[in-house]
Nucleic acid binder design. Structure first.
Lengths: 196, 196, 196, 196
DNA sequence: AATGAATGAGCCTTCATTCAT
DNA sequence: AATGAATGAAGGCTCATTCAT
C-alpha cells in the first residue's frame, strides 16, 4: 500500500507530541527536534508539514481549544435550563481532561504567549469571546442586562483565576471545591435578586 | 567621580532594565546582552554582578513582588476597619503602578515560569500565601471560619483572573469596574450574612 | 553525488583535523571551530556528530592509540623470538609515524590531560597496561619473574622518557640512537644473566 | 609601619598560589583570579606585579626549577665519590618534596607547555642541560666518553620516564623501587666495564 | 600599595531551517 | 513521503587585562 494521505496523521501526531513536550518541559522552550522525535519522525518532516515552529504552536493551540470546546458542547447536550447550562460552562474548565498536567501547561503558556504573538492573541480572544457570549446568553434570561454582564465577567475571572492558581500554587482547593465556589458566586447573585 | 559602591546601583539598573525588556518583548526570551545594554553596561558586567541570567530573573521577580508588597502596605496605613483593609488588598493589584504594561508582562511571565523553575515557584508561593494570610486575617473578623476561607479563595481567584484577562484579552472591563466587581463579591457575602 | 553515510567520513575528518590542530598549536587549547574549519565543516556539524569537544578529544585519543597499537601489531607479525618481539615493542614508539610533530604533541597533551580527566586517564592506563603485559610476556621467557618485572619497568620508563625528551629538548639523540640505547639496556641484563 | 617592599612578598605568594592552583586543577587552565584569590589579593594586583599571566607562569616555573636545583645541591654537599654524586642526582627527582601532587602537576604541565611557549622551552632546556652536564662530569671519571654519554642519556630518560609514569599511571613502582631500578642501571654498566 | 569597576574578545553549544537525495 | 546532512546565527558565560581612585 502506498503511503498516501499521511499528512493529517503526521500533523495530528506532531500536535499531540507538542502538547506532551510542553507539558514535560513546562515551557514553550521546546525544540522542533524534541517534538518531532516524540512524534516519531524527523524534524525536517515536521517543517515539511507545518512550515515553521510557529505554525506547530498555533495548530497545537487550536487543538487544545477545540478539545475544550467539545467538552463544553458535550456537557450542554444534557443541559435544559439556563442555570444548568451555566453550570456546564463553568464546570468544563475543571473537568479532568482539562486538568491534566500537559493541558494545563499548554494553556498557561499559550496565554502568556499572547503577550507578543498577535495570532496567539487573536485565537485566545476568539475562545474568550465565545465563552462570554455563551454565558451572557443564559445570564440574560435570569438577570437584567447590566447584572448579566457583571456576573459573566465575574464568572470568567473566577474560572481563569482558579485555573491558573491550581496550576501554580499550593493551598488551592481541589476541583470539586472550586466548582462549588463558582456555583456559590452565582447563587449569591440569585439570592440578591430574590431579595429585591 | 569616584566609582565605588557601584554594585547596588548596577544591580538596580539591571533589574529595571530586565523589567523593561520583558515588557518590551512580552517574553522571558530576552538576552542578557539586551538587558545589559539597556542598563548601560556590558553583558560581562551583568554576569559579574549576578552570576547568571537565572539570578537576574530571580532578583527581578523579587523586586516586582516587593513593589507590590509596598503598594499594599502603603494602602494599609490608612485603613482602619477590616473591610477597609480587605478593600486595600483587593484594590492594590489594580493600582496604576501594577498595571503598567511592563509590570504586567513580568508578572505573567514569572507566573508561567513557575511551572518549571522550582525557585520561581517558591517565590510565587511566598507572595500568594502572604496575600491569603492577610485576607483571612480580616475576613475572620467578619465571617465564620469556613466562609472566610471560601471568600478568601474567591477573592484571590478574582484578582488573578481579572489581572490576567486584562493583560491578554479585549472586552475586559477597566480597572475601576474590576475593583467594583470584586467589591461586589464581598458585598454579596455580607448581604447573605445579614439575611441569615 | 549522494550525501549519505557521511558520519564516519566526517568523524574521521574531525579526528584528523583535531590532531593537526593540536600539533599546530602545541596545546589542547584549540577551539572546536578551528578543528571544524580545518576539517571543512561548520562547528555546528562537529557538535552534531560528537556531541561535545570532550568527545572529540576522546575519540582523537583513541585514534592515536589505535595507530600506535597497529604499528606494534604490524611489527610483531614478523617477530619470532621473544627478543625480537621485545625489540619490536620498544622500537614502535620511535617509528617515524609516531614521531611526527603532530602525533607527538597529541600524545604529550593527552598524557597531561590525564591529570584532571578521569576518562583520559582510564584510556591511557589501558594502553600502558597492554604495553606492560606484552613486555612481561616475553621477558618472562628470558628472566626470572622479579627480574622480568624490573626490566619491563625500566624499558617502559626509557620509552616514555626518551619520547618526551625528544619532543621537548635539544641535545637528545636521534631515533636510531635512542633505539640502540634501549636495546643496550636489555643487553646489559642479558650479560648479567649470562655471567651468573 | 609603611607597607614598603611588598613586591617580593606578593610575588612569592602568587607563585606559591600558582603552584597550588595548578596542582588543584591539574592544568594550566587556571585563572589569574583564582591564583590571586588564593594568594590573598586582587587579580589587578597580580597583574600589577607580574604584567601578565604568562609572566606568572614563567616565574612559577623558575621557582619550581630552583627548588629542584637546591634539592640537588643540598644532596651534593655530602657526596664525595663520583658514584655518590650520580646517586644524589638521580635520587633528587624522586625526593618527597618533588613528589608532592602539586609539584608534579606543575612539572608536567610546564613540560608540555614547552611545545608552544618558546620561553618555557628555553627554561626547560637550561635545566635539562645542567642535569646532563652534572651527570656527564661524574660519568666521565668512570667511563670512556662514548659510554659516559650513553649512560647519561639513559639515566636522564629513566628519570623523566619514571617521573611522568608515576604521576599518570597505575601499576608503577614506588619511589624507593624506582631509585633502585635507576641505580641498577648504573650498576649494570659498571659490571660490563668490570668484565671487559 | 591596592582594588573594584569595567569590557572586548572569544568559546562552547543550541537550534530553526534548508537542501539534496 | 521522508530524512540525514548541513549551517548561520545567536546566546550564556568566562577571562585576561585595563583604569580610575
Amino acid at each position: 500500500m502506498p503511503k498516501i494521505g499521511m499528512e493529517p496523521v503526521r500533523k495530528q501526531a506532531l500536535i499531540e507530541a507538542c502538547i506532551a513536550e510542553i507539558g514535560h518541559a513546562g515551557t514553550l522552550d521546546v525544540t522542533v527536534s524534541q517534538i518531532a522525535k516524540r512524534a516519531g519522525m524527523s524534524s525536517a518532516l515536521a517543517h515539511h508539514y507545518f512550515g515553521s515552529k510557529e505554525q506547530i504552536f498555533l495548530a497545537t493551540m487550536r487543538h487544545v481549544m477545540r478539545i475544550y470546546g467539545e467538552t463544553v458542547l458535550r456537557g450542554l447536550k444534557n443541559a435544559r435550563t439556563p442555570l444548568e447550562r451555566i453550570r456546564v460552562i463553568t464546570d468544563s474548565s475543571f473537568d479532568s481532561n482539562q486538568f491534566e498536567r500537559e493541558i494545563v501547561a499548554a494553556w498557561l503558556n499559550f496565554y502568556v504567549r499572547a503577550l507578543h504573538s498577535a495570532e496567539t492573541r487573536r485565537l485566545l480572544n476568539v475562545y474568550a469571546r465565545r465563552l462570554q457570549t455563551n454565558l451572557l446568553h443564559d445570564l440574560r434570561k435570569i438577570f437584567p442586562e447590566a447584572t448579566a454582564i457583571e456576573v459573566a465577567q465575574g464568572i470568567a475571572a473566577l474560572i481563569d483565576g482558579f485555573y491558573i492558581r491550581s496550576a501554580l500554587q499550593d493551598q488551592v482547593p481541589g476541583r470539586v471545591t472550586i466548582k462549588a465556589i463558582i456555583a456559590d458566586y452565582l447563587t449569591l447573585w440569585l439570592e440578591r435578586k430574590a431579595r429585591d
